[in-house]
Design a protein around this nucleic acid. Sequence first.
DNA 1: CACCAGGAATGTA
DNA 2: TACATTCATGGT
Length: 204
Amino acid sequence: MDNSISALYKDLRKKYGRPEGQWKLWCKRPKTLTEREEVVVGAILTQNTNWKNVEYALANLKKEKLCSLSKINGINKLRLSRLVKPSGFYNQKTDYLKRTAKFIDEECGGLRKLGKKPLVELKKELTALKGLGRETADSIILYALDKPVFVIDAYTRRLAKKLNLTDNLSYLSLQNLFESNLPRSYKLYQDFHALIVINEKQGR
DNA sequence: CACCAGGAATGTA
DNA sequence: TACATTCATGGT
Protein backbone atom coordinates (compact mmCIF):
# COMPACT_ATOMS: atom_id res chain seq x y z
CA MET A 1 0.00 0.00 0.00
CA ASP A 2 2.78 2.38 -0.87
CA ASN A 3 1.64 3.89 -4.15
CA SER A 4 0.41 7.37 -4.98
CA ILE A 5 -3.22 6.30 -4.71
CA SER A 6 -3.00 5.10 -1.15
CA ALA A 7 -0.75 8.03 -0.31
CA LEU A 8 -3.55 10.25 -1.54
CA TYR A 9 -5.99 8.54 0.78
CA LYS A 10 -3.69 9.02 3.74
CA ASP A 11 -3.37 12.72 2.96
CA LEU A 12 -7.10 13.22 2.68
CA ARG A 13 -7.69 11.24 5.80
CA LYS A 14 -5.17 13.28 7.73
CA LYS A 15 -6.68 16.48 6.38
CA TYR A 16 -10.37 15.77 7.00
CA GLY A 17 -10.64 12.85 9.39
CA ARG A 18 -13.83 10.89 8.90
CA PRO A 19 -16.27 12.03 6.21
CA GLU A 20 -18.76 14.55 7.59
CA GLY A 21 -22.02 16.19 6.61
CA GLN A 22 -23.89 14.54 3.80
CA TRP A 23 -21.49 11.61 3.90
CA LYS A 24 -22.11 10.71 7.51
CA LEU A 25 -24.96 8.40 6.60
CA TRP A 26 -23.44 6.98 3.45
CA CYS A 27 -20.20 6.07 5.27
CA LYS A 28 -21.90 4.87 8.43
CA ARG A 29 -21.12 1.33 9.56
CA PRO A 30 -23.17 -0.60 10.12
CA LYS A 31 -26.33 0.81 8.54
CA THR A 32 -29.88 -0.20 9.32
CA LEU A 33 -32.05 -1.46 6.49
CA THR A 34 -33.96 1.82 6.50
CA GLU A 35 -30.74 3.76 6.16
CA ARG A 36 -29.66 1.59 3.25
CA GLU A 37 -32.92 2.29 1.49
CA GLU A 38 -32.43 6.01 2.01
CA VAL A 39 -29.04 5.68 0.34
CA VAL A 40 -30.64 4.02 -2.68
CA VAL A 41 -33.18 6.81 -2.98
CA GLY A 42 -30.53 9.48 -2.51
CA ALA A 43 -28.27 7.90 -5.13
CA ILE A 44 -31.00 8.27 -7.73
CA LEU A 45 -32.12 11.73 -6.66
CA THR A 46 -28.61 13.16 -6.74
CA GLN A 47 -28.15 12.57 -10.46
CA ASN A 48 -27.01 15.82 -12.03
CA THR A 49 -28.25 17.76 -9.03
CA ASN A 50 -26.55 19.35 -6.04
CA TRP A 51 -26.98 17.64 -2.72
CA LYS A 52 -28.85 20.53 -1.12
CA ASN A 53 -31.79 19.96 -3.45
CA VAL A 54 -31.67 16.25 -2.74
CA GLU A 55 -31.97 17.02 0.96
CA TYR A 56 -35.17 18.94 0.35
CA ALA A 57 -36.62 15.99 -1.53
CA LEU A 58 -35.51 13.47 1.10
CA ALA A 59 -36.99 15.65 3.82
CA ASN A 60 -40.30 15.69 1.96
CA LEU A 61 -40.31 11.90 1.73
CA LYS A 62 -39.33 11.40 5.36
CA LYS A 63 -41.91 13.87 6.62
CA GLU A 64 -44.58 11.62 5.15
CA LYS A 65 -42.79 8.42 6.15
CA LEU A 66 -42.37 7.48 2.52
CA CYS A 67 -38.61 7.17 2.29
CA SER A 68 -38.67 3.42 1.83
CA LEU A 69 -38.65 1.17 -1.19
CA SER A 70 -41.92 -0.57 -0.37
CA LYS A 71 -43.69 2.75 0.16
CA ILE A 72 -42.28 4.19 -3.03
CA ASN A 73 -43.36 1.06 -4.83
CA GLY A 74 -46.91 1.54 -3.62
CA ILE A 75 -47.41 5.29 -3.82
CA ASN A 76 -48.94 6.94 -6.89
CA LYS A 77 -46.64 8.68 -9.30
CA LEU A 78 -48.16 12.12 -9.05
CA ARG A 79 -47.73 12.22 -5.31
CA LEU A 80 -44.16 10.91 -5.51
CA SER A 81 -43.23 13.43 -8.18
CA ARG A 82 -44.47 16.31 -6.05
CA LEU A 83 -42.31 15.15 -3.14
CA VAL A 84 -39.10 14.74 -5.13
CA LYS A 85 -39.64 17.89 -7.18
CA PRO A 86 -36.92 19.99 -5.50
CA SER A 87 -34.23 17.61 -6.76
CA GLY A 88 -35.01 18.49 -10.37
CA PHE A 89 -35.78 16.18 -13.32
CA TYR A 90 -38.67 15.06 -11.16
CA ASN A 91 -40.66 13.25 -13.84
CA GLN A 92 -37.69 11.11 -14.82
CA LYS A 93 -36.60 10.53 -11.25
CA THR A 94 -40.10 9.51 -10.20
CA ASP A 95 -40.08 6.90 -12.93
CA TYR A 96 -36.57 5.72 -12.03
CA LEU A 97 -37.44 5.49 -8.33
CA LYS A 98 -40.58 3.47 -8.95
CA ARG A 99 -38.87 1.04 -11.33
CA THR A 100 -35.94 0.57 -8.95
CA ALA A 101 -38.18 0.17 -5.91
CA LYS A 102 -40.32 -2.36 -7.71
CA PHE A 103 -37.31 -4.35 -8.82
CA ILE A 104 -35.63 -4.44 -5.41
CA ASP A 105 -38.73 -4.79 -3.27
CA GLU A 106 -40.91 -7.04 -5.43
CA GLU A 107 -38.65 -8.97 -7.75
CA CYS A 108 -35.69 -9.40 -5.41
CA GLY A 109 -37.58 -9.53 -2.14
CA GLY A 110 -35.82 -6.55 -0.59
CA LEU A 111 -32.39 -5.00 -0.27
CA ARG A 112 -31.12 -7.72 2.01
CA LYS A 113 -31.72 -10.39 -0.58
CA LEU A 114 -30.39 -8.20 -3.33
CA GLY A 115 -27.16 -7.91 -1.37
CA LYS A 116 -26.64 -11.65 -1.41
CA LYS A 117 -26.11 -11.69 -5.14
CA PRO A 118 -22.60 -11.81 -6.54
CA LEU A 119 -21.00 -8.55 -7.60
CA VAL A 120 -21.05 -9.18 -11.32
CA GLU A 121 -24.71 -10.04 -11.23
CA LEU A 122 -25.51 -6.95 -9.17
CA LYS A 123 -23.80 -4.63 -11.63
CA LYS A 124 -25.55 -6.25 -14.53
CA GLU A 125 -29.02 -6.19 -13.01
CA LEU A 126 -28.81 -2.69 -11.60
CA THR A 127 -27.45 -1.08 -14.76
CA ALA A 128 -30.16 -2.90 -16.70
CA LEU A 129 -32.70 -0.80 -14.80
CA LYS A 130 -33.85 2.33 -16.53
CA GLY A 131 -32.21 5.35 -14.94
CA LEU A 132 -29.32 3.51 -13.36
CA GLY A 133 -26.05 3.96 -15.18
CA ARG A 134 -22.63 2.78 -14.03
CA GLU A 135 -22.16 5.48 -11.45
CA THR A 136 -25.53 5.24 -9.75
CA ALA A 137 -25.41 1.44 -9.77
CA ASP A 138 -21.94 1.45 -8.24
CA SER A 139 -23.01 4.00 -5.63
CA ILE A 140 -25.83 1.72 -4.57
CA ILE A 141 -23.53 -1.31 -4.50
CA LEU A 142 -20.87 0.47 -2.45
CA TYR A 143 -22.90 2.65 -0.09
CA ALA A 144 -26.17 0.76 0.29
CA LEU A 145 -24.90 -2.81 0.01
CA ASP A 146 -21.40 -2.37 1.44
CA LYS A 147 -19.67 -4.14 -1.41
CA PRO A 148 -16.23 -3.08 -2.63
CA VAL A 149 -16.68 -1.18 -5.89
CA PHE A 150 -14.92 2.14 -6.32
CA VAL A 151 -17.34 4.84 -7.46
CA ILE A 152 -16.16 7.14 -10.23
CA ASP A 153 -17.92 10.47 -10.50
CA ALA A 154 -17.24 13.99 -11.74
CA TYR A 155 -15.12 14.76 -8.68
CA THR A 156 -13.03 11.62 -8.91
CA ARG A 157 -12.43 12.29 -12.58
CA ARG A 158 -11.52 15.90 -11.92
CA LEU A 159 -9.03 14.89 -9.25
CA ALA A 160 -7.46 12.21 -11.41
CA LYS A 161 -7.02 14.72 -14.20
CA LYS A 162 -5.58 17.32 -11.88
CA LEU A 163 -3.03 14.94 -10.40
CA ASN A 164 -2.26 13.28 -13.73
CA LEU A 165 -2.92 9.89 -12.22
CA THR A 166 -3.55 8.41 -15.66
CA ASP A 167 -4.01 9.40 -19.28
CA ASN A 168 -7.15 7.32 -19.72
CA LEU A 169 -10.03 8.99 -17.91
CA SER A 170 -12.75 6.55 -18.94
CA TYR A 171 -14.96 5.14 -16.20
CA LEU A 172 -13.61 1.61 -16.26
CA SER A 173 -10.01 2.71 -16.54
CA LEU A 174 -10.31 5.02 -13.54
CA GLN A 175 -12.17 2.43 -11.55
CA ASN A 176 -9.49 -0.12 -12.30
CA LEU A 177 -6.79 2.35 -11.33
CA PHE A 178 -8.24 2.87 -7.86
CA GLU A 179 -9.27 -0.72 -7.25
CA SER A 180 -5.99 -2.24 -8.36
CA ASN A 181 -3.97 0.08 -6.15
CA LEU A 182 -5.97 -0.43 -2.98
CA PRO A 183 -6.96 -3.29 -0.73
CA ARG A 184 -10.41 -4.55 -1.71
CA SER A 185 -12.29 -3.00 1.21
CA TYR A 186 -15.71 -1.42 1.03
CA LYS A 187 -14.95 0.66 4.11
CA LEU A 188 -11.87 2.10 2.48
CA TYR A 189 -13.70 2.72 -0.80
CA GLN A 190 -16.57 4.47 0.97
CA ASP A 191 -14.39 6.80 2.99
CA PHE A 192 -11.93 7.45 0.18
CA HIS A 193 -14.53 8.41 -2.38
CA ALA A 194 -16.38 10.59 0.13
CA LEU A 195 -13.15 12.37 1.03
CA ILE A 196 -12.38 12.98 -2.63
CA VAL A 197 -15.72 14.71 -3.08
CA ILE A 198 -15.32 16.72 0.11
CA ASN A 199 -11.86 17.78 -0.98
CA GLU A 200 -12.88 18.78 -4.49
CA LYS A 201 -15.79 20.79 -3.19
CA GLN A 202 -13.60 22.60 -0.70
CA GLY A 203 -10.88 23.48 -3.15
CA ARG A 204 -12.90 25.91 -5.22
C1' DC B 1 -29.70 36.96 -15.35
C1' DA B 2 -26.66 33.07 -16.73
C1' DC B 3 -24.76 29.13 -15.35
C1' DC B 4 -24.34 24.76 -13.15
C1' DA B 5 -24.82 20.72 -9.90
C1' DG B 6 -22.17 13.81 -7.36
C1' DG B 7 -26.25 11.42 -14.78
C1' DA B 8 -28.62 8.70 -18.06
C1' DA B 9 -31.29 7.71 -22.22
C1' DT B 10 -31.76 8.42 -26.85
C1' DG B 11 -30.42 9.56 -31.43
C1' DT B 12 -26.93 10.46 -34.87
C1' DA B 13 -22.60 9.67 -37.53
C1' DT C 1 -16.88 5.02 -30.00
C1' DA C 2 -17.94 9.84 -29.45
C1' DC C 3 -20.74 13.67 -29.28
C1' DA C 4 -25.32 16.46 -28.94
C1' DT C 5 -29.74 16.96 -26.89
C1' DT C 6 -33.22 16.43 -23.36
C1' DC C 7 -34.83 16.37 -18.69
C1' DA C 8 -35.78 20.87 -14.63
C1' DT C 9 -35.04 22.56 -9.78
C1' DG C 10 -32.72 25.75 -6.55
C1' DG C 11 -27.98 28.12 -5.44
C1' DT C 12 -24.63 31.39 -6.42
